[in-house]
Design a protein around this nucleic acid. Structure first.
Length: 813
DNA sequence: TTCTGTACGTA
DNA sequence: CGTACGTACAGAAA
């Protein structure tokens, strides 16, 4: 083989057999070789980090031998591109690389013949080439832009080295996806006998009917039971009945491993098939526990820990008829097998972490049973009252629309951002307002906006244009109306459902969803004013338990450990930080450093003053409301501009705190809690020394972002959120699993039934006759003790009950 | 029909 | 330069 160097290929003397292919040269002027300057440096660093033996070297090539115009691949004329690709292919045929390693999304298109078009999906999954193994990863350019890709790229380079050294062949899949009746029954009975863990996955059609169900029983074998074909049914009716009978037992009795943090499979089986599937492990939960900032998809898990080629494009192809429809069943079998394999590897990953991680994973799996319970149970919804309310609101909206059109002198379509923009900035020529937007790459952009805040600000600056305020209020009202109108009950009932994902967020908070059948709502963004429509049901009570000062406790503990004990002192003696700030603002700024006793001595006067303000200005418009926003914002490094915007917006344009006033109040707040400044520095130093934070729950969040202020802010909110979540989840976990919360011994029926969770608010329902018993149970289950940075504390609940979510006025405990 | 951006609801 | 989310709608792309 010839040693030669061109802008297209660099072939080293001591070649290791790998050809690393990029998309185009570094820049217009740096085209002498495929990778130059920082790109080459990055590649060498990645090889070193991934343990490549650098005594021999990879060859480097590019799709393009030149830098495309404006750095846009699309600008390259088709024939030119074709020539370049052909030349690359000639090079590949000549050098015959054992490893073809393509970097970047453009590159992937040309070196993998069946590339799906999504690099993040296919990255890290090996494929066969005529001369060896192929692999895709990020281009150094992409890694620079998106810092967290770096760790993933190291993983890909580690894999690449292994494939180069040991080669790669696709594992043999043993998937029986067109089984006979006899085979299915035999397999199911065998599972029932052995009770070995099974990897389970279902595929469903648009109506949530199960098209097939796959069961993997070892790391290469699965049986898939098809139910429907595009034209009918796979089984005779009597066969299907017999299969479901045994299948139901398998799903309820065998330990199942799933890939389904949203509990979609469980929900479908329970609601549509009356099967309470026994999922005891979930690869999504495990992957979240290991790297909560990363994706949790099966393809991603495969790319990190396994060696299967990309298989995820088959489902779409099978459904659209591009490949035989039976391949959907085979695909389902692969999913099950990869789930089983992934669970195995993730167990090893968890072992590498402190023991708390595995404990928290197990805890979350127990919590996930509560998510399933709440999803299936649902709650009663007051449809009669909803309909009445809708009527009133719709009339109100109609009147507002007429008023708006008159005031504006033309019809204003408030739900169209485009039309609103034209009205404000073209017709009325008002000053353009911008909104901060963080794009996928993490860069901050500013875009034109016409949101509620903008309309309020414009209305304030242009009092001669009363239409502005009306437009803002109307748009909000329309949003509320459409949310209400779209609520649909489960057929024949007044019940609605919701879904939860216990690992839906990076901080450990739940994510909530509208159920896949559409019969319900997203539980966590229900408009406060409509919460009274969610009912306990006849003979029942709705009980709402809020964590009191939820996030503040962890904040106080962190400050305490840094030597500033004042916030903890305040909280322990019933002084909320925002109250201290308000008292000092109202009765003399010297009070800002006063002890809690002094602050408290002003409480009667302070509370009376706020009551008066509420009477005069309306709800959410008192000074205390403003100072709450200042305190909250300052805790999380919010700037004075956003703080005063928030106050203005929350008070519907009534409360305007000038920017410098807002800034002064922040200084005042920081004077009382000087630890806040130290905390920022401490977090920045933790980011560079450790790069992770451990919560008391056992969960560790590794921060993959850049070492900048942005990440420091994420870190500051991490532990408060993680601990709040832990306290709420702990309550639910106990209520669900503790035998003391059962109607009677041996019963599965709960006395206190969890129904909803909104971060620091736990909603439960119990029968009226069990009020006293529920109080006892709650007292037992609601205790917690958290240690943060060596400081112990407890987050107390404040509980009330009533007939509905929005109507909890009686004190519970 | 599917995707993207904007706006807005929650803690 | 608060954090963390999901959904509805409009309008464009396919």
């Amino acid at each position: 083989m010839s040693n030669y160097k061109t802008s297209k290929l660099i072939m080293p003397r001591n070649w290791n057999g790998a050809l690393i292919v990029g998309d185009c040269p570094y820049s217009e002027s740096a085209i002498a070789s495929p990778f130059m300057h920082s790109h080459l440096g990055q590649l060498i660093q990645l090889q070193a980090k991934a343990g490549w033996d650098l005594a021999s070297r990879p060859a480097y090539a590019n799709i393009l031998s030149f830098f495309p115009k404006n750095a846009k691949f699309a600008s390259v004329p088709e024939p030119v591109l074709k020539n370049e690709v052909e030349e690359l292919n000639r090079i590949i045929d000549e050098v015959k690389p054992k490893l073809l390693f393509g970097l970047g999304r453009q590159t992937a298109r040309f070196i993998k013949h069946d590339f799906s078009g999504d690099l993040e999906e296919e990255r890290g999954a090996p494929f066969a080439t005529p001369y060896g193994t192929g692999l895709l990863s990020f281009h150094p350019r992409e890694i620079f832009r998106q810092f967290e890709f770096n760790i993933v790229a190291v993983n890909d380079f580690t894999k690449a080295w292994r494939y180069l050294r040991d080669g790669w062949t696709e594992q043999k899949w043993n998937i029986n996806y067109q089984p006979t009746f006899k085979q299915v029954l035999e397999a199911l009975h065998k599972f029932l006998e052995s009770r070995a863990p099974l990897g389970v996955d279902i595929e469903t059609n648009y109506h949530l009917g199960i098209t097939c169900i796959g069961i993997a029983y070892n790391h290469s074998s699965a049986i898939v039971i098809p139910f429907t074909t595009p034209t009918g049914f796979y089984w005779q009716p009597y066969e299907e009945r017999a299969i479901w009978k045994v299948l139901c037992q398998v799903l309820e009795k065998c330990p199942l491993i799933g890939q389904n943090a949203v509990h979609f499979d469980h929900y479908v089986l329970a609601r549509g098939y009356k099967i309470n599937a026994n999922f005891v492990a979930d690869t999504m939960f495990a992957q979240w526990e290991v790297y909560c900032e990363m994706q949790k998809s099966l393809a991603f898990i495969n790319s990190l820990y396994l060696d299967n080629p990309y298989w995820k494009s088959v489902l779409k192809a099978a459904r659209s008829g591009k490949v035989p429809y039976q391949q959907e069943w085979e695909y389902c079998g692969k999913d099950c097998i990869v789930t089983l394999q992934g669970a195995h590897e993730l167990r090893r990953e968890l072992n590498e972490l402190p023991s708390g991680s595995y404990q928290h994973y197990k805890f979350n799996i127990r919590v996930s049973r509560v998510c399933q319970y709440m999803a299936i149970r649902g709650v009663e919804f007051n449809f009669a009252e909803r309909d009445k309310r809708l009527k009133v609101l719709e009339e109100e909206a109609h009147a507002m629309q007429l008023d708006l059109d008159v005031k504006a002198g033309k019809h204003i379509f408030v739900t169209s951002p485009q039309k609103m923009k034209r009205w404000l900035y073209e017709d009325l020529k008002l000053p353009i307002h911008y909104n901060k937007k963080t794009n996928d790459e993490g860069d901050v952009e500013y875009r034109e906006t016409q949101d509620y805040l903008t309309l309020l600000l414009l209305a304030r600056d242009f009092p001669n244009l009363p239409a502005l305020g009306v437009a803002g209020r109307l748009r909000k009202l329309r949003k509320r109306i459409s949310s209400l109108r779209l609520i649909v009950p489960r057929p024949g009932t007044n019940t609605i459902g919701w879904l939860f994902n216990a690992v839906g967020t990076e901080t450990g908070r739940f994510a909530g969803y509208k159920p896949p059948d559409g019969w319900g709502v997203q539980p966590q963004n229900v408009y406060s004013g409509d919460k009274d429509l969610f009912l306990a049901g006849a003979g029942n009570l709705w009980c709402k338990s809020d964590l009191e000062g939820a996030d503040a406790w962890t904040m106080a503990a962190m400050l305490s450990s840094l030597g500033d004990h004042r916030m903890m002192d305040d909280l322990l003696h019933g002084v909320k930080p925002a109250q201290a700030l308000t008292v000092a603002s109202l009765y003399g700024e010297h009070l800002i450093t006063a002890d809690w006793q002094t602050i408290k001595s002003y409480f009667p006067a302070f509370k009376a003053a706020m009551k008066l303000q509420e009477k005069e200005r309306g709800k959410k418009r008192t000074d205390y409301d403003a100072y709450k926003a200042v305190s909250h914002g300052t805790n999380y490094c919010m700037g004075p501009k956003t703080t005063c915007d928030n106050i203005f917006k929350k008070s519907d344009g009534e409360l305007y705190v000038a920017l410098d006033v807002c800034r002064d109040k922040q200084f005042l707040y920081e004077k009382r809690y000087p630890g806040l400044q130290i905390l920022k520095e401490r977090m920045a130093s933790l980011l560079s020394t450790h790069g992770y934070l451990d919560a008391y729950s056992g969960n560790r969040r590794i921060f993959f972002g850049r070492r900048d202020n942005n990440t420091v802010r994420e870190m500051i909110s991490q532990l408060p959120q993680a601990h709040t979540t832990y306290a709420t989840n702990l309550l639910f976990e106990r209520l669900f699993h503790w035998r003391g919360n059962r109607i009677d011994a041996g019963s599965r029926q709960l006395v206190i039934q969890p129904v909803n969770q909104v971060h620091d608010e736990a909603c439960k329902v119990f029968a009226q006759q069990h009020l006293e018993r529920s109080r006892d149970i709650f007292r037992t289950c609601s205790t917690n003790r958290i240690t943060c940075w060596g400081v112990d504390f407890t987050i107390p609940f404040e509980s009330t009950y009533g007939e509905s979510w929005g109507n909890c006025d009686e004190v519970f405990v």
